[in-house]
Simulated scan of single mutants.
Amino acid sequence: MITVMNAESYLKHKIGEDTDDIKKVWEAFKAFCKEPVEGEEDKEILFQCGVYDFTGEALFHLDFVRQFTIYEEDEYSHMEQLHCEFLFKPTDELSNLEIGEWSMDYDNIDDFLSHIENLQEFKIPLILKPIKSEIYQEAV
């Protein structure tokens, strides 16, 4: 079974080497979103994008996130997020895109994923080539 500790390596293995191929990463991420993770009570999936200067430079971020709530002995401990993040130079078209959508706002994960695939915030960057991509997990 997938655990929070091995979720990043599991997803990286599923995606393979070509992490700049957004469509390929999305398909692997989508399948991963439906797989159970040990100790997970609810699926917490986030799609977000926008122009931010987290790196010290204003870049367009496209980010697929799976969030895990960690409990130790039935007590809340912390959260971790597994990101599939793509960075782009902000064009006029990309600069107008900004959104954050959580799966918990939908009846089921399929409705959420279908909704995301129909958003312009998803469709427009999907056909572009990122300047950088990264898959990483962090405590939040």
Rank of each mutant, 00 (worst) to 15 (best):
K14D: 10
G56E: 11
S77E: 12
A31C: 05
F60M: 00
F32H: 06
V65E: 04
E8Q: 12
D21E: 05
H83L: 05
L11T: 01
K23R: 11
W26E: 04
D53Q: 11
Q81K: 12
K12V: 07
I45C: 00
P36E: 08
A31S: 12
K23S: 09
E27I: 06
A28Y: 01
C49N: 13
F64E: 01
D20V: 06
D42S: 10
D21G: 07
F32C: 07
P36D: 12
S9C: 03
C33L: 06
E40F: 03
H83W: 04
A28M: 09
L62A: 07
Y10F: 13
G56L: 11
C84W: 08
W26P: 06
Y76M: 06
D74V: 04
E73W: 01
E8H: 03
K12L: 12
H83T: 02
E57T: 15
M79E: 15
E73D: 14
F29Y: 03
F54T: 06
E41F: 07
D18M: 03
K34S: 11
I15T: 03
C84A: 15
K24G: 05
E72F: 08
K34D: 06
A7L: 02
F54R: 14
L82D: 02
S77K: 14
Y52Q: 13
H78N: 10
L62F: 15
E73A: 10
G50D: 00
I15N: 07
E17F: 07
L82R: 00
L46S: 08
I45R: 03
T69E: 15
E75N: 12
F60K: 05
E72S: 09
C33P: 05
E80R: 14
I70G: 02
K30S: 13
H78M: 09
Q81V: 08
P36T: 04
Y71C: 05
L82N: 02
I15K: 07
V25W: 05
Y76V: 05
K23F: 08
C84Y: 08
R66M: 06
I70S: 00
Y52A: 13
H83P: 09
W26G: 08
G56A: 10
D18G: 02
Q48N: 13
Y10E: 12
I45V: 15
G50F: 02
E73V: 01
G16D: 06
K43Q: 13
A31P: 01
Y10N: 10
V25D: 01
K12A: 07
F60W: 08
H61D: 14
E72Q: 08
S9N: 09
I15Q: 07
F47E: 08
H13I: 03
L82H: 05
Y10H: 13
L62R: 08
K34R: 15
A7S: 15
D42P: 00
H13M: 09
D74Y: 07
F64A: 00
E27F: 05
G16M: 06
S9M: 05
D42H: 11
F47P: 07
F60I: 00
F68E: 02
Q67V: 13
K43Y: 10
F47R: 09
E57L: 13
E35F: 01
V51S: 12
G56H: 11
G16K: 03
D42Q: 11
H13Y: 09
F64R: 03
E57V: 14
H61F: 15
G56C: 09
